[in-house]
Nucleic acid binder design. Structure first.
Lengths: 209, 209
DNA sequence: AACTGTGAAGGGTTTCACAGCC
DNA sequence: GGCTGTGAAACCCTTCACAGTT
């Protein structure tokens, strides 16, 4: 099955949606409802679920519990994934202290910074280490988060890649250059807003979902 | 021209790339180079630029200055855009104090929180206001950023929408339900990582760009 | 030699529409 | 009546390939 990229993003949305509905006690969910909340066409929802082997009951919908469980397993969220975080400034500590990552099964296992004043300090239950120790000599998580000033982002990315990271969440506005096989997710607000403006300045037009 | 959504994202990438090359003093840039740095196929780059009316010179490439200027204009970055930020916690203040937004022409014009201990305080050159004043009675920016605890996110989103916001950058993991016409960008790290895991757990497979 | 501009092919995704089932 | 499951069509996007230009 040549898995499209859009699918993975949709699955994540379904999961968030079904997780919320599950907490509300619903034990059946329809493709229409999932579509409504996630902005996906109901037919597409059915296709996606069928593709995962999740079958529904006609006239009723899908079993909430089954959808939830299968999505978690398929997305790999039934295990804990370690994450290495670089940058112990305001943003970095906000991320490190956030419950969001923990809720989804991510654990910040390492915290680095270059500032000697920060190295050795404790943030939560982590000790800030010198970023120069991030050199590939040590077994590291596959996931890295960059929360440093933009001008140091590429250098940090290089170190992360060298130490085995294959997924980078980039909080800076630097355009990172990484080898093929390494994924970068840009999450700085200006990146998000930039391509949104494109539609804002053309207000009135339909926005593709 | 029925504008695809992928295009807007690519344009933002081209701009970041060409901005960097411009600062290095290059006055011509090829589709190959733009593609290399942004991970886009060169043919696609040429298509995109041609679609914007940017013509290149065969054998040479595109004029850096023209590409830069046109992209900025098309993306609406030649004007300053006001932003309303809700949440004055660690994350909120990190965002408010960030240079990233300013660099791209965004200005945090309003800062709200619900915590009485924070209301009235100054963050940078902003005064934290009571989130209850965010009720649509006042002319507000079209762009909002949510940096509050997840459980309050939907309520804040409702207030933002009521006050005229049409683009929301959501730092929480809540799945926001908004009227058609309002765009939500989820930037919490777990959202980004969730669909990435899908590929991580299938490591070795090709990842669609 | 280098690079643009574009017809044409290819692939994947989204949507419609409706038969089948509860 | 409500909803799933799926052929089939439409659509969009992407990529190849190459003629054309400097």
């Amino acid at each position: 099955m040549a898995v499209g990229r859009g699918l993975a993003r949709r699955l994540a949305k379904y999961l968030r949606c079904v997780a919320a509905l599950r907490e509300e006690g619903l034990d059946a969910v329809s493709s229409w409802m999932l579509g409504e909340y996630t902005g996906v066409n109901p037919a597409q929802v059915r296709r996606d679920l069928a593709g995962l082997g999740i079958g529904g009951t006609r006239g009723v919908g899908y079993e909430t519990e089954e959808v939830f469980g299968t999505l978690r397993r398929v997305l790999g969220l039934d295990r804990v994934h370690d994450v290495v975080l670089v940058g112990a400034g305001r943003l970095g500590t906000a991320v490190a202290g956030s419950e969001l990552l923990v809720k989804r099964g991510f654990r910040v296992a390492q915290l680095f910074d270059r500032d000697p004043a920060k190295i050795g300090r404790r943030v939560g239950n982590l000790t800030v280490r010198d970023v120069r120790e991030l050199d590939g000599g040590e077994r590291m998580p596959e996931i890295g988060i960059i929360a440093v000033p933009s001008q140091n982002a590429q250098e940090v990315a290089d170190r992360l890649v060298a130490s085995g990271v294959v997924v980078i969440v980039n909080y800076t506005d630097a355009l990172l250059h990484v080898p093929a096989g390494v994924q970068v997710h840009d999450v700085d607000p200006s990146s998000q807003l930039m391509h949104t403006l494109y539609y804002l300045t053309r207000s009135g037009e339909e926005i593709p979902a």
